[in-house]
Amino acid sequence: MPVSPIVKISNLDKFFGRLHVLKNISLEVPERQVICLIGRSGSGKSTLLRCINFLEEPSRGKIEVDGIQVDAEGKGKEQRKLIHDVRLKTGMVFQEFNLFPHMSVLENVIEGPVTVKGMDRKHAIELAEQNLDSVGMLFKKDEYPLRLSGGQKQRVAIARALTMEPRVMLFDEPTSALDPELIGEVLNVMKKVATEGMTMIVVTHEMGFARDVADRVIVMSDGELIEDANPDELFSNPKDPRTQALIDRYRSGEQ
């Protein structure tokens, strides 16, 4: 019997002004699945990801995360509460890390649990140290973000998101702002998070990561999902010529 999906996107539309950037998108993500969203820039993949936790407000359609259903056209206090609940279920990692520069690494990580969940500070620190340890950043817990490398910042950002104990992790091009030699350490941490059973939706250009870690790769083009398959199948036998073109582009870039 199929389990009900943890993320369910139904008939989602998004307009930026007159520009139709997401076109009637529906997608179901079962628990523990790792999905990579790929596509050329401007294809709408980041926008789709950001619609899941309402950093971008969808224009029409429904988002459901772990049983909380939000209609894009909902309004008022009720809607704000629903969006808040969805955000508590989702952790997000940004391309530009977005660590809080006025807080130390540890303060960054406990900020969410303490301020948002009202968690006891001692308990939050325990949890934070555990997660910092698992991304290999515990030794920098008293440093300020300014003193960290990009890769270190991103690992802290992952720990910060994990410490909120989300059901789903959203990654928005997590390695695109990194120097090439720092990409590996972040991908390794993401791999680790995946093997621990986290549901992940990853917008990425890292084809190697998609091939090795993803259960499913979804290709976007012009605001539509054009292909959805497991990585082996998708990379060896793409159905859509646009997917083929995309893969060729990456292949030539990798050499």
């Binding site: 989702t90 977005n98 809080f100 900020e111 301020t115």
Partner: peptide, 27 residues
């Protein structure tokens, strides 16, 4: 204070008030 700071706070589930007091104003 960059837009990313607000987004990071919002993604953590902070209310606009918390985002202002804890993240934006200090910076």
């Amino acid at each position: 204070v960059g837009k990313g700071q607000r987004e990071a706070a919002m993604a953590l589930g902070m209310t606009p008030g918390q985002t202002m007091m804890r993240i934006v104003l200090p910076q």
